[in-house]
């Protein structure tokens, strides 16, 4: 059994209950969802769901194949992390008592989207790894809270389906 994180990318009809149908299979195969992004596309007709799943690789493949049985699913593909261009957005609330905002911006290129007396909220977009590193660099004690979106991903041109 090989275990790793895989990206499950599905294109589904944009109607109520579709995520529920997808999640059923993910749960059945005992996979953990580490990230989930979704948004409407194709003029509102469809919805792109991108899941980062951890667990048995064969189980992820099984889900992708069996999803095609679900009536509302248009496409389902799995990708390894190296096969996709993946981006995630994170909002990080930072305690500014011990760290200067200017320094943070200089070091990371993040955007400050809100600032208060003792804290700021920084927005950073990048790969999951870049966000991890950003948080690490701030130092655990300076980070008050984090909200991550989970990755959105599209296959690279060189990735075969």
């Amino acid at each position: 059994m090989t275990r790793s994180s895989k990206v499950l990318s599905t294109l589904v009809e944009n109607k109520p209950g579709t995520l529920f149908r997808v999640i059923h299979l993910v749960r059945l195969m005992r996979l953990n969802i580490e990230g989930l992004t979704l948004g409407v596309t194709n003029g509102g007709a469809d919805c792109r769901m991108t899941m980062t799943l951890s667990g048995d690789d064969a189980a992820v493949e099984h889900v992708a194949r069996q999803l095609m049985k679900v009536i509302d699913i248009l496409e389902a593909h799995t990708y390894g992390p190296e096969e996709v261009t993946a981006r995630e957005l994170a909002l990080v609330k930072i305690n500014t008592d011990k760290i200067s905002v200017a320094e943070i911006q200089r070091n990371t290129g993040c955007r400050i989207v809100d600032s208060s007396k003792h804290s700021v909220v920084a927005e950073i977009v990048g790969s999951a790894k870049e966000i991890d590193e950003f948080v690490q660099r701030l130092g655990e004690s300076n980070v008050l809270d984090i909200a991550r979106t989970g990755v959105a991903a599209l296959p690279k041109e060189t990735t075969s389906r």
């Binding site: 589904v12 009809e13 007709a45 009536i71 509302d72 699913i73 248009l74």
Partner: peptide, 9 residues
């Protein structure tokens, strides 16, 4: 309707 289509089916 005489028929229906289901897009993803």
């Amino acid at each position: 309707p005489e028929s229906v289509t289901v897009r993803a089916y």
